[in-house]
Simulated assay, not measured.
Amino acid sequence: MVSMNVRPDIDAAAAKLGSAFGSKREIQRLPEVLWEGESVQMLATGTYGNGSGLVAMTSMRLIFLKHGILSQTVEDFPYGKISSVQWSGGMLMGTLTVYTSGNRADIKNMPKDAGKAIADQLRMHVATGATSGPGAAPGPPVAPGQDIAGRLATLDQLRAAGAITDEEYRDRRAKILDSL
């Protein structure tokens, strides 16, 4: 468990990391790369390109952040631009492959449990067309009942994937139902 005291959503996601070895600087710097209104849902460590860093799944996109002493790398994948997701896991680690507009990004050396959970959530975003935030393509209008049902289904999947605790599930479910 990792305690960072950065921001409540980031702290909650960091608390679920098995180890933040090599990514504490990235966790501290994560608020600098987030868009307004964007919240962090899951975190994992991984290697992308030439460096090891932090993989953050947010309410709007998937982000890879490496914040070194001399350089910083930020690569983001807005959900509306992701066409396909692949997870390939070994005994302890795996590779998350994200396909966007004919491009392919391989994030390697991700812990198996966190990588699979992120891959499953990304697939859900791709399948449902869930997009939001700057640069996202507008989706078709959604009837209020469908929106609530979709949000509840997403919440159920997050709990089943272990991305949120039972207490977080109950709190978020109550908020969704109160919005009726």
Score class of each variant (00 low, 15 high):
1 M>A: 15
4 M>G: 12
6 V>W: 10
7 R>V: 01
10 I>V: 15
11 D>S: 13
12 A>M: 12
13 A>P: 10
15 A>D: 11
20 A>H: 09
20 A>L: 13
23 S>A: 11
25 R>T: 06
25 R>Q: 04
25 R>E: 04
26 E>L: 00
27 I>A: 05
27 I>Q: 04
27 I>R: 01
28 Q>I: 05
28 Q>A: 11
30 L>A: 02
31 P>L: 09
32 E>I: 09
32 E>P: 05
32 E>S: 14
34 L>F: 10
34 L>I: 10
35 W>A: 12
36 E>L: 11
36 E>N: 10
37 G>K: 08
38 E>T: 03
38 E>M: 07
40 V>R: 03
40 V>N: 03
42 M>A: 15
44 A>R: 04
49 G>H: 07
50 N>L: 15
51 G>K: 12
56 A>R: 01
57 M>Q: 07
61 R>M: 00
62 L>C: 04
63 I>E: 02
67 H>F: 06
67 H>M: 00
67 H>Y: 05
69 I>H: 13
69 I>A: 14
70 L>S: 15
70 L>F: 15
70 L>G: 14
71 S>G: 12
75 E>K: 13
76 D>C: 09
78 P>R: 02
79 Y>W: 05
80 G>W: 06
80 G>P: 06
80 G>T: 07
85 V>I: 03
87 W>I: 01
91 M>G: 08
93 M>H: 06
95 T>W: 01
97 T>A: 02
98 V>M: 02
98 V>F: 00
99 Y>T: 08
100 T>N: 08
101 S>T: 05
102 G>F: 11
102 G>I: 10
104 R>A: 09
106 D>P: 02
108 K>G: 00
108 K>S: 09
109 N>E: 00
112 K>Y: 03
112 K>H: 09
114 A>V: 01
115 G>R: 00
115 G>V: 01
116 K>V: 01
119 A>P: 00
121 Q>E: 11
123 R>V: 02
123 R>M: 09
125 H>A: 05
125 H>E: 01
125 H>M: 04
126 V>N: 03
127 A>K: 14
127 A>V: 03
128 T>H: 04
129 G>H: 10
130 A>V: 01
130 A>G: 03
131 T>Y: 00
132 S>C: 03
135 G>V: 06
135 G>P: 09
137 A>R: 12
138 P>K: 09
138 P>H: 10
139 G>N: 10
140 P>Y: 04
140 P>V: 07
141 P>S: 13
142 V>M: 14
142 V>Y: 00
144 P>C: 07
144 P>Y: 02
145 G>M: 10
145 G>N: 14
146 Q>A: 14
149 A>L: 14
151 R>G: 05
151 R>K: 15
152 L>P: 06
154 T>M: 07
156 D>F: 07
159 R>D: 04
160 A>D: 13
162 G>P: 12
163 A>C: 13
163 A>P: 12
163 A>Q: 13
166 D>R: 13
166 D>M: 08
167 E>F: 13
169 Y>C: 11
171 D>M: 13
171 D>G: 06
172 R>I: 12
173 R>I: 07
173 R>T: 08
